[in-house]
Design a binder for these strands. Structure first.
Lengths: 158, 158
DNA sequence: GTTCCTGCAAAATTTTTGCATCAGT
DNA sequence: ACTGATGCAAAAATTTTGCAGGAAC
């Protein structure tokens, strides 16, 4: 088959723990201090399979007992995104979504159900190849891409 | 070559005029009346090559002497998007962008310069093929897709 | 001890909605 | 005439910023 992750975007637990460590490390290298709110965001994103909104992150942290101000969540995401440790996506909803960005470059894309709004990750090597070829022929120095598919999911099609 | 539109997304003038007529028609069929603001939005989008924000549409209409309230622009875009006459995209900026959607399904995608923010359209048939293949193997009934590339444009790379 | 981080509240933006009025059919 | 479309202003929702206090180094 053509994908390294199958149809869902689950990373192995080990990868995610590694990502968290890598992120903490990169933050340190970039001259940032280790505060509680940012660490909480990193740990939450490490534990999460797919993208979350800032509000969702905030809510889950509260639910987990760690509380972090929503502004701090936004600030943490801003720094993490700038360092390319986190990927920010706009799936057309009201809020932006964020997910851990694997330093190896391995990544997935998303299908959004037009009816229920559910977001499902997928990966496909041939698609990546085609994207690479396109990037070649453009005059831009392309270093990132987002693919977003829309349609009705199996459940909503019944 | 692999694209029907080359590297830029210019439609021929005739296509665009046809789109405007088609849109007016579809609006009528959907039971909408022909008001001034909505017609102005349709005509502006028909004349435009690539995506615009609601605010940009509003500003250009003012500049052209046709004035339409910003709320009416949003409402027009909402209706047009629901009828699939206009495509709404989130390129990561603060505002959503809108562009005419060709009923033939012919469409283009976008590269955004990380530095200057300029949006450039492109099209690629092999990419479309790969996307079609992905859509096949997913359990979703995919009916739309957006591709967004990011990187530095030739000008910003100098 | 200095400087960054955090949280709260206020502000800035973008988009939506209420309502009175105008225009299209 | 009836009903949808429009414009303005107000509201809602999301994200950013100012500032005082606390934490990290």
């Amino acid at each position: 088959m053509s994908t390294g992750q199958g149809q869902n975007g689950h990373g192995h637990g080990a990868d995610r723990a590694a990502w968290a460590a890598h992120a903490e490390d990169a933050l340190g290298q970039a001259g940032h201090r280790a505060g509680g709110a940012r660490r909480a965001v990193v740990e939450l994103l490490a534990a999460e399979d797919c993208c979350l909104t800032a509000q969702e992150i905030h809510d889950r942290l509260r639910a987990d007992g760690r509380r972090a101000g929503l502004a701090s969540v936004y600030r943490a995401l801003e720094v993490l995104t700038a360092l390319r440790l986190v990927h920010r996506l706009d799936l057309g909803g009201a809020s932006a979504r964020y997910e851990a960005a694997d330093p190896s470059g391995e990544h997935h894309h998303h299908v959004v159900c037009r009816e229920c709004g559910r977001v499902t990750p997928f990966a496909d090597d041939e698609l990546e190849e085609a994207l690479g070829a396109v990037a070649e022929r453009l005059s831009h120095q392309v270093d990132e891409h987002d693919i977003l598919l829309r349609g009705r999911c199996a459940d909503c099609r019944e």
